[in-house]
Amino acid sequence: MLNLSLPKVAASTDELFAGVHQFVQAESVDDDTAFQLTVAAEELFTNLVKYSRRSNRPAEIQFSREGEWIEMRITDFDADEFDITTAELPDLEVPITERRAGGMGLHLVRSFADTLSYSHEQGNNVIIFRKKMERPNVHDSA
């Protein structure tokens, strides 16, 4: 398990990447899952940096593994409600000249998650991203 407490500023993403790397190494997470977990972590945290401005409290990000399942839990304290599981996604069918990167990150997160949940608890937004490892490392299953 790994716990991070990160100020919601762009400079924190380097610490986030280092944390994800440390976690996937310690838990022998396979490359495909590690890549997707890293993307999901960046996209979700970047959303907080850009849009969650009600509070300056650092966000808490917890990574854990249970068997073949990887979980990332993000808590944004004193935050306005924003349900990422129902938020509108960009239209991916429009011509490329009309495409924008905005919203695409959320599309990637939803694509990578096996389960994705959102709750607003006591003024805090809690996102739980869960993914089953695609190829658990051989030495880890012995």
Partner: peptide, 19 residues
């Protein structure tokens, strides 16, 4: 080694500018 949606945006912007 790695790309996120921000990286995809780089190619969209570059493609559209060049075209």
């Amino acid at each position: 080694d790695y790309i996120s949606s921000a990286g995809l945006g780089v190619f969209i912007v570059t493609h559209n500018r060049l075209r």
